[in-house]
Design a binder for these strands. Structure first.
Length: 595
RNA sequence: GGCCCCGUAGCUCAGUGGAUAGAGCAACAGCCUUCUAAGCUGUGGGUCGAACGUUCGAGUCGUUCCGGGGUCACCA
C-alpha cells in the first residue's frame, strides 16, 4: 500500500499537471508533517514552485489546494495556505479506512521476502575475558539490525567471529598453569568466561610486577616489557600452539570450552544468538592465496625483506602490510580471506560488520584492498561503526578495573525491575515463574532500549542512575504502554475479528494523530534498514507510546461515547499494541502482557 | 602533523534544506470514587561551539577557526 506521503506526492504532481501542464524540470516537493500549531495533517512545501511558475504564493497554494480537493475528494477534506506552505487535511474516511485495513495485522510495516541475503557480523568476542558493557552495545545493535533487515524482506545470517587464538589466550593459559592448581569453573563455582578472565587479569598483575622488578634492577622499561619471564612463556606457548603441540592445544581447547559455556549463558539470558560462528583458529590462515594472486597481478608489491604491501596512497590511506617478511599473515590478511568466504558461501547482497569506530580506518582499508584485488563484493562491505560507551566516571579500562561487566549490569537491571515491580504491586496473583520472566523482560528491556536509543555512530554516556530509570524515554515506558493496552483489550473481552466500525466521521485530534503516526511505521522500518540505524525505531516506539498515553488519558476506550467510537478505539488500541510489540521486537525487546 | 567523527536547554539526546528548534531527566505547579499514576497536563529553561558563505529559507549544505574524541602497528 502506498504511504500517505507518497499519496500526497503523486496527487500534487497530478494537480500541478492539471493546472499548469507539464513542467520541464523535475520538482522536488517536500512533504512534512504539519506543525501542531497549524491546522492540517501534512504540509506541502511549495516554495520551489513559486519560482518555476512565477505566481504569487497564496494564489498558487490556493489553486493547488482546490485542485487537490477536486481531483481527490475522497482523500482530502480541507486545506489552508500560509506563505509557501500548503497544509492538507486527510478526510476522516481515508484515515478510518486505513485503520480498518490494518489494525488486526500483526506484521504491519514488514515486507515480504525480497530474495536477498545479508550477513550481520556482531559480538565477536575475545576468549580471554568476559563480555562487558561495550560489547552489549555491539550485540544489541547487531541483533536489532538483523531483526530490522529481516522485517524489510532480507534473509539475514547472524554471524560472529570468535577471536580464540593468539597471545591473549596464551596469557590466560600460562597464568592458569602457574596458579590454578588444576582449578576449574566447576570446582570454584565460577562462570567459565569469568574464570578464564580472572587468569588473564592474574597474568597482567604478575607481568606488571615483573616489569617493575626488572626496571628496579636498572633495565629499560621497553626492554623489561620484552624480557619479563611470564611474557616470554606466553610467547613460547603461542609458538607451540602454532606448531600444534598436543598438550598446549588440549589446554587451549579446554579453556576456550569454559569460556564458550560462559558466553552461551550470557547470550541465552540476553536473548541473542547466531546462525554462523567463525573461529579465528580456523580462519587465521585464510587470505594468503589472494595476497599471492595480487602479487602476481602486480596489485601488491614486495619489499626487500620479503614483506608484501599494498599502496593505498591514491585513496589517502598510506601503505598497508599484508604479509610479514617471514610469510606469516597479519590481522587484515585473514579479514580478506574471511570476507571472500562469506560472500562465496552465502551470495550476500551486503555484509555488515558491527565493529567499534576505533576500527573505522581498518575497515576502510579492508574495503579498499578488496576493491583493488578486484573483488566485486567490495562495495557490499558495510561497517556499522558505533561509538564507545563511556561512563560518568570516565572511560572503561580493564586494567583499572573500571569495566562494567555485562552479567553484573544485566543482573542489576533485572533486580531493579523486580524491586520496582514489587513496590508498585500491580501484578499480584502472578506465578513465581511468570514474575521471574517479567523481571527479565523489563530489566533487559530497559538495558537494550537505553543502549539502542542513541544514534549508533555517536559515542554515548552510560549513566547508571539514568539507565535503571524506568520512566520517560525508556524501554519499560514503551512496555508499560503495551501492557496497558492489553489490559483494555482483556477487559473489553472481544476477539480482534469481531471489532468493526463503519462510518467514522468526526475523528478527534488525538485519534487522527495516532492513526497518522501508526501509518508512518513502515517508513520508519525502511529508513532504519536503509540507514542501518536502529535508534530510529527506538525513537519511534517512544513517540508512539507517548502519544497513546496522551490519548489514553484524554479518552476512554471502554466507556466511549457510543458503540461506534468504542469499536474504533478498540481497533486503534489493538493497532497501537501490534506496532509497539513489533517495534520492540525490532530492538530485541519483549512486550509483557501485564506489568 | 594527515585523515575521520562529534559539539543543540543544567544533564542525556532527537531534529535526514522549510513555519516561533523538540523530547526525557532534573526543578516547580496540578491530575487517581473513571480502561494499570512505570501515566497525563502545565510552567520555567536555547546567541543550535564561533565567523563567513550558498539559498526565497541553514541547527541541517560549504569554507575557516575553536573545543572534545578516534585513528594513522610487521597488535588483535
Amino acid at each position: 500500500m502506498m504511504s500517505l506521503t507518497d499519496l500526497i506526492r503523486s496527487a500534487v504532481k497530478e494537480s500541478i499537471k492539471g493546472l499548469y501542464g507539464d513542467i520541464a524540470e523535475p520538482l522536488d516537493i517536500q512533504i512534512t508533517p504539519t506543525k501542531p500549531e497549524f491546522e492540517g495533517d501534512y504540509t506541502v512545501v511549495f516554495f520551489p514552485l513559486i519560482k518555476v511558475l512565477k505566481r504569487r504564493p497564496d494564489e498558487l497554494g490556493t489553486q493547488l489546494g482546490n485542485k487537490l480537493l477536486e481531483l481527490y475528494p475522497a482523500s482530502f477534506s480541507k486545506f489552508n495556505v500560509i506563505k509557501g506552505f500548503l497544509n492538507l487535511s486527510f478526510s476522516d474516511s481515508l484515515l478510518s479506512d486505513f485503520l480498518r485495513e490494518n489494525f488486526i495485522n500483526g506484521s504491519f510495516g514488514t515486507q515480504p521476502s525480497n530474495g536477498k541475503t545479508v550477513m550481520v557480523e556482531y559480538a565477536s568476542p575475545n576468549t580471554n575475558k568476559p563480555i562487558h558493557l561495550g560489547h552489549l552495545r555491539n550485540i544489541f545493535l547487531g541483533w536489532s539490525m538483523a531483526e530490522i533487515l529481516e522485517a524489510n524482506g532480507f534473509k539475514v545470517i547472524k554471524s560472529s567471529i570468535i577471536n580464540d587464538r593468539g597471545i591473549h589466550i596464551c596469557k590466560s593459559m600460562i597464568a592458569w598453569q602457574m596458579f590454578a592448581n588444576g582449578a576449574t569453573p566447576e570446582s570454584t563455582h565460577t562462570k567459565g568466561d569469568h574464570f578464564v578472565g580472572n587468569y588473564y587479569v592474574r597474568f597482567n598483575d604478575v607481568y606488571q610486577e615483573q616489569i617493575a622488578a626488572l626496571v628496579a634492577e636498572g633495565m629499560d622499561k621497553k626492554q623489561a616489557e620484552r624480557d619479563a619471564p611470564i611474557m616470554k612463556e606466553a610467547q613460547e606457548m603461542l609458538v607451540k600452539w602454532e606448531q600444534g603441540d598436543e598438550e598446549v592445544r588440549s589446554l587451549w581447547a579446554t579453556m576456550n570450552g569454559w569460556v564458550y559455556k560462559g558466553f552461551d549463558e550470557t547470550f541465552k539470558r540476553i536473548g541473542i544468538g547466531f546462525d554462523k560462528v567463525y573461529y579465528e583458529s580456523d580462519t587465521y590462515l585464510l587470505g594468503k592465496d589472494y595476497v599471492k594472486e595480487g602479487l602476481e597481478k602486480n596489485i601488491l608489491f614486495k619489499k626487500e625483506d620479503g614483506s608484501v604491501w599494498i599502496d593505498l596512497n591514491d585513496v589517502k590511506l598510506d601503505e598497508k602490510l599484508l604479509l610479514r617478511g617471514d610469510g606469516t599473515s597479519v590481522y587484515i590478511t585473514q579479514d580478506i580471506g574471511l570476507a571472500v568466504q562469506k560472500f562465496e558461501e552465502y551470495s550476500l547482497e551486503k555484509s555488515i560488520y558491527v565493529i567499534g569506530d576505533e576500527q573505522l580506518h581498518h575497515m576502510k582499508v579492508l574495503k579498499e584492498i578488496c576493491r583493488k584485488l578486484g573483488f566485486g563484493f567490495a562495495d557490499a562491505i558495510y561497517h556499522l561503526s558505533y561509538g564507545m560507551v563511556e561512563l560518568t566516571t570516565g572511560k572503561m579500562k580493564s586494567r583499572e578495573g573500571t569495566v562494567v561487566d555485562a552479567d553484573d549490569i544485566v543482573e542489576e537491571m533485572v533486580q531493579t525491575a523486580a524491586a520496582h515491580t514489587a513496590e508498585l504491586g500491580k501484578v499480584e496473583g502472578t506465578t513465581e515463574e511468570d514474575l521471574k520472566a517479567l523481571y527479565e523482560t523489563l530489566g533487559l528491556g530497559a538495558m537494550k532500549f537505553y543502549l539502542l536509543r542513541v544514534d549508533p555512530k555517536k559515542r554515548m554516556l552510560f549513566d547508571p542512575k539514568e539507565s535503571i530509570d524506568f520512566h520517560g524515554f525508556t524501554g519499560p515506558f514503551v512496555q508499560y504502554t503495551y501492557a496497558r493496552i492489553k489490559s483494555i483489550l482483556r477487559k473489553a473481552a472481544v476477539s480482534a475479528e469481531t471489532i468493526s466500525f463503519s462510518k467514522s466521521d468526526s475523528l478527534l485530534p488525538l485519534e487522527r494523530q495516532l492513526m497518522l503516526l501508526l501509518e508512518t511505521y513502515p517508513n520508519v522500518l525502511a529508513d532504519s534498514a536503509r540507514e542501518v540505524n536502529a535508534s530510529l525505531v527506538a525513537n519511534y516506539a517512544f513517540s508512539l507510546a507517548q502519544l497513546f498515553n496522551s490519548f489514553y488519558a484524554e479518552h476512554s476506550v471502554l466507556k466511549a461515547e457510543n458503540n461506534e467510537k468504542q469499536q474504533l478505539r478498540l481497533a486503534l488500541s489493538l493497532f497501537t499494541a501490534n506496532v509497539l510489540k513489533s517495534a520492540l521486537k525490532m530492538l530485541g525487546i519483549n512486550a509483557p502482557e501485564r506489568m
